Simulated assay, not measured.
Amino acid sequence: MDWLLTPFEVSFVARALVAGVLVSGICALAGTWVVLRGMAFLGDAMAHGMLPGVALASLLGGSLFLGAALSATAMALGVTALARSPRMSQDTSIGLLFVGMLSAGVIIVSHSRSFAVDLTALLFGDVLAVRPRDLVTLASALAAAVVISLVGHRAFVALCFDARKAETLGLRPRLAHTASLGLVTLAIVASFHVVGTLLVFGLLIAPAAAMVLWAHRIPVIMLGAAALGAVSTFTGLLVSWHTGTAAGATITATAVALFFVSAGAAYVWTRRPLAEPVAVDETPGKEFEYTP
């Protein structure tokens, strides 16, 4: 059992585990709505759209969290503004901002000749470098995500099915949509330091997508996604310690692998053999019914 527990006796690995669990909770709350509303492309674009702010903050010696927050907020506001045009689809506006923000980030990075190491950490994360004050920030972000999810739950649920119905019920779908973008922004900004801007999308989507295949209640999906994220963090850190792989990438790869395991199990379950046919009605035109 030493191989299972020894890595987490090291202080920075233990902090990484706590950080990953907190991030898993944040991503579960936001990722559930992303998956249910089909906003995966938006989540991916916002994860990449943070790069300009993070790169600029790093070059100027400022706060990476602040730079990421400002950049992601600008991305969210831009998507909201462009989506109001009746002649432009949301996918088009997201794609344009995605490419524009990513290009801006690359341009900023290209002005520094000594940015290679920092860029690697920004893109792929450095979970083992999490500091105690980062844990406080993550805990605060999780608390904020819980509040947003509780306050906006009814409106978020209505948006998943019919925005016009939400308007009829007085749930203000536009405000709810903006709040959901804020929740996604919060999750991405809080998570990028752990798994990086390029890998945060996997932790945001994979656990929630894995749970959607099994659960039918939104709170259950969220709790299950948080649990899968925590398992991915523990397993990823363990594998990384023993194999020498990048910790953030290993955590994300584990989360994606768990999704495929869940998808395979769900496929097998839905294809399970049925019981013997039972004749319930022999009137003409009716066949035997099967009971699972």
Rank of each mutant, 00 (worst) to 15 (best):
residue 1 M to S: 12
residue 4 L to S: 03
residue 10 V to G: 00
residue 11 S to G: 04
residue 11 S to H: 11
residue 14 A to P: 07
residue 15 R to L: 12
residue 18 V to S: 05
residue 27 C to K: 08
residue 27 C to W: 12
residue 27 C to S: 13
residue 29 L to Y: 08
residue 29 L to A: 14
residue 33 W to G: 10
residue 34 V to I: 12
residue 35 V to Y: 10
residue 41 F to V: 11
residue 41 F to R: 00
residue 44 D to Y: 14
residue 45 A to C: 09
residue 45 A to Q: 07
residue 45 A to E: 09
residue 49 G to E: 12
residue 50 M to N: 10
residue 50 M to A: 15
residue 51 L to I: 12
residue 53 G to P: 00
residue 53 G to Q: 00
residue 53 G to A: 07
residue 59 L to V: 13
residue 66 L to G: 05
residue 69 A to L: 15
residue 69 A to G: 08
residue 72 A to E: 11
residue 73 T to K: 01
residue 74 A to W: 02
residue 75 M to P: 03
residue 75 M to T: 03
residue 80 T to W: 05
residue 85 S to E: 03
residue 93 S to D: 01
residue 95 G to C: 09
residue 99 V to Q: 08
residue 102 L to R: 10
residue 104 A to T: 14
residue 106 V to T: 12
residue 108 I to L: 15
residue 109 V to E: 10
residue 110 S to E: 10
residue 116 A to V: 14
residue 118 D to F: 06
residue 126 D to A: 15
residue 127 V to R: 01
residue 128 L to E: 11
residue 131 R to A: 14
residue 131 R to I: 03
residue 133 R to C: 01
residue 134 D to P: 09
residue 135 L to H: 10
residue 136 V to Q: 05
residue 139 A to C: 05
residue 139 A to H: 05
residue 139 A to W: 06
residue 143 A to K: 03
residue 146 V to C: 12
residue 146 V to S: 06
residue 148 I to R: 06
residue 151 V to H: 06
residue 154 R to P: 02
residue 155 A to W: 00
residue 157 V to I: 07
residue 159 L to I: 01
residue 160 C to A: 13
residue 161 F to K: 02
residue 161 F to N: 07
residue 163 A to H: 11
residue 164 R to P: 00
residue 164 R to L: 09
residue 165 K to N: 09
residue 167 E to V: 06
residue 167 E to F: 02
residue 167 E to C: 02
residue 168 T to H: 13
residue 168 T to E: 07
residue 170 G to F: 08
residue 173 P to R: 04
residue 173 P to E: 01
residue 174 R to G: 10
residue 177 H to K: 02
residue 178 T to F: 10
residue 178 T to L: 11
residue 178 T to G: 08
residue 180 S to F: 04
residue 183 L to E: 03
residue 185 T to E: 08
residue 185 T to R: 01
residue 185 T to H: 02
residue 195 V to K: 02
residue 196 G to D: 01
residue 197 T to Q: 09
residue 197 T to Y: 00
residue 201 F to N: 05
residue 202 G to N: 13
residue 203 L to A: 08
residue 204 L to H: 05
residue 205 I to N: 00
residue 205 I to Y: 12
residue 207 P to Q: 06
residue 208 A to R: 09
residue 210 A to P: 07
residue 211 M to P: 00
residue 211 M to G: 01
residue 213 L to F: 09
residue 213 L to S: 12
residue 214 W to N: 03
residue 217 R to S: 11
residue 218 I to Y: 04
residue 219 P to T: 10
residue 222 M to V: 15
residue 224 G to T: 05
residue 224 G to S: 06
residue 224 G to N: 03
residue 224 G to A: 07
residue 226 A to S: 08
residue 226 A to E: 02
residue 227 A to V: 15
residue 227 A to D: 05
residue 228 L to V: 05
residue 230 A to C: 03
residue 230 A to T: 10
residue 241 W to M: 02
residue 244 G to S: 04
residue 244 G to M: 04
residue 245 T to N: 09
residue 247 A to W: 01
residue 247 A to I: 01
residue 247 A to C: 06
residue 250 T to V: 06
residue 253 A to P: 03
residue 255 A to E: 00
residue 256 V to Q: 06
residue 258 L to I: 06
residue 269 W to R: 14
residue 271 R to H: 14
residue 272 R to I: 13
residue 272 R to F: 13
residue 275 A to S: 15
residue 278 V to T: 15
residue 279 A to W: 13
residue 282 E to N: 12
residue 283 T to P: 00
residue 283 T to H: 14
residue 283 T to V: 12
residue 290 Y to H: 13
residue 292 P to E: 11
